[in-house]
């Protein structure tokens, strides 16, 4: 479902060093990244801040073009067929909403129906279902800017799923959520993957997400994959009885050395 073949993304940063002198530096946010995600997998994507997680997500969704290598998502090249791909994937950014800030949720969803050209009956069905599962009913008419973080995140997830995407990409979906909302979100994502077979790729800093949701984990650091395997295999990299936090900390700091 997702194929990444030796993908890299570099940025040229120019920094002023003197009054007229500029220093140009090439920064590799992601280098030589290769992995495959099969249909129906639930994959966690881990890495310290600035490791290249967001850059990967942006390349998978067509926001950023890779500077080297090839990417295919749902059979499409994200850069060349960005709008076609948009109909087949759902994207959620935990840090900011993709909803319209001043519009009530209901209007946002109606807009999405038109933008994605979803059949009216199918849309109604899906929206009712998601409304029930995620409990959106009480704030359907509230403008997005007045929603709490948890409510907004439920709205964002709904928006990303209304067009029934084959792949769901989530960038830190549980960031800032309280314990109850977090548990509800995890339950929902697990069911979605198990029952509908939606392929899910999620980045997170919350290791609880990984333990409770993902069968497979990938760890990126300094733009390279440092681990790709099952959660159990990830645990096995450290002495027994280590908590998952310790395991990941070891992995992150090992890459520093």
């Amino acid at each position: 479902m997702i194929e990444v073949h030796q993908a890299g993304r570099s940025f040229t940063i120019s920094r002023r060093t003197g009054l007229l002198r500029r220093e140009r530096r090439v920064v590799h946010a992601v280098r030589d990244l290769s992995f495959t995600v099969e249909a129906g997998e639930f994959v966690g994507y881990l890495g310290p801040n600035g490791a290249g997680k967001s850059t990967t997500i942006k390349m998978l969704t067509g926001i950023l073009a890779p500077t080297s290598g090839h990417i295919q998502v749902a059979g499409l090249d994200p850069t060349k067929h960005r709008t076609a791909l948009a109909r087949r994937i759902g994207v959620v950014f935990g840090q900011r909403t993709t909803l319209w800030w001043d519009l009530p949720l209901r209007d946002s969803f109606e807009l999405i129906r038109h933008l994605y050209k979803v059949d009216r009956v199918k849309h109604r069905e899906r929206l009712d279902q998601l409304t029930e599962v995620l409990g959106l009913g009480e704030f359907m008419r509230t403008p997005v800017r007045q929603l709490s973080l948890g409510q907004r995140m439920r709205g964002d997830i709904t928006a990303a799923l209304l067009h029934d995407p084959a792949v769901l990409v989530l960038d830190e979906p549980t960031i800032g959520l309280d314990v109850v909302s977090k548990a509800a979100m995890r339950g929902f994502l697990r069911d979605l993957n198990a029952e509908q077979g939606t392929t899910v790729l999620l980045t997170t800093h919350d290791l609880g997400d990984i333990e409770r949701l993902c069968r497979r984990v990938m760890v990126i650091d300094h733009g390279r994959l440092t681990f790709d395997g099952t959660v159990d295999a990830l645990r096995a990299t450290a002495p027994e009885e280590s908590s998952i936090e310790d395991v990941v900390t070891r992995l992150y700091t090992a890459a520093e050395k």
Partner: peptide, 14 residues
């Protein structure tokens, strides 16, 4: 700068 342009790029509309 606000990152909202990213949101526009994930929609199937120009």
């Amino acid at each position: 700068r606000a990152g909202t342009f990213d949101s526009m790029l994930i929609r199937p509309v120009s």
